[in-house]
Amino acid sequence: MPFDTDDEAIELANDTVYGLAASAWTRDAYRALRATSEIRAGCVWVNDHIPIISEMPHGGMKQSGFGKDMSSYSFDEYTVVKHVMYDRTGVAAKAWHRTVFTTPGAPTAGC
C-alpha cells in the first residue's frame, strides 16, 4: 500500500484491530523515533522484523491480547503480588480504632 506523507504512513500502520508487532524502515532518526512511539504494537522493530530474544517481552496491544511472554515481564503474569503488613507497636487499642470505639470503657492504650 502506498503512502505520501509520514502522517499517512502512521495512520495506515495503526489501521487495524491488531497490535502485536510492526517495523519501520528508515535511516532518519526522527522518523524512527516517531514511528516507534506512535505505532500501537507490542514490539516495533527499526530496520528489521521478526527477531525475538529471551530477555525481552513478547505480547500485544489492542485485539492482539494482553500480557507478556518471555523476559522477566512474564513473571507479572505468573505471579501474584501480596501485601504483608505487620503492626510494630504492640498496642491493643490502635489510634485508628477511635473511628469505631466511641463509648467510654473502650480499650485504652497499653499492653
Binding site: 504512513a9 487495524t16 502485536l20 517495523s23 504494537a41 500485544g60 500480557g67
Partner: peptide, 18 residues
C-alpha cells in the same frame, strides 16, 4: 488471563530507507 492473539503487522518503508 494471559492472551497472545493474532497480528497483522505493518511494515512501514519510508522514502529514505535502505
Amino acid at each position: 488471563v494471559h492472551l497472545e492473539l493474532g497480528g497483522k503487522a505493518p511494515f512501514v518503508v519510508f522514502d529514505d530507507a535502505d
